[in-house]
Amino acid sequence: MSNFFSSSIGKKIIMSITGLFLILFLLLHLSINLLLIFSAEAFNTASHFMATNPVLKVMQYVLAAGFIIHITWASLLTLQNQAARPIKYNTNSPARNSTWSSRNMFILGSLIFIFLVIHLSDFFYVMKFGDMAGKSDYELVTSTFKIWYYALIYIVGFVFLGLHLSHSFHSAFQTIGLNNKIWMKRLKVIGTIYLFIVCIGFAIIPLYFLIPELF
């Protein structure tokens, strides 16, 4: 495996594996969040379980590593890719041959990163190290979502996430080589279904708490 991680394909495989790991994490995150709609108690229990279970505690670090590696390698690859074309085209019509999001994964990723920082400081940091002032996890989350601009930040964040995911799923499989002419179409369909479930699923939650506040 010498030089694997420094080769272009090796670096991409790292992006792919960490990406797929984050895709899985999003599903888990979503299923816990959806509990917010159904029962405060269930959410609190799940939230507590996530925070205290020793295996999951370790997984938190793995998850953090996943994010950090995904972001670091993305930056590295983007810098190299910029260098591969020192003189840009004067006239360019890339929209004819590729999707906007596929070409702007780094920008989308950066926007998601900003969202992530806001998100972590809102909830994760407060839950873990902050002063909960006697509030349960459920109360903390729902009270935030009831503030309109917070809800908006989250919904916009999920739009970015959706665009990012629109080029993630099939792309990840392509990079690790699990793809061919037939599966390309199938993976794109599965990927699209996944991204709608995740993005609509996440977006419903702040809306669910915000809308009653507006009327």
Partner: peptide, 18 residues
């Protein structure tokens, strides 16, 4: 071939399909 490709300064594939 991949090693040579990297050495020659080609960029990395990001699967845009262009």
């Amino acid at each position: 071939m991949v090693a040579k490709m990297d050495e020659l300064g080609f960029g990395n594939c990001t699967n845009t399909g262009a």
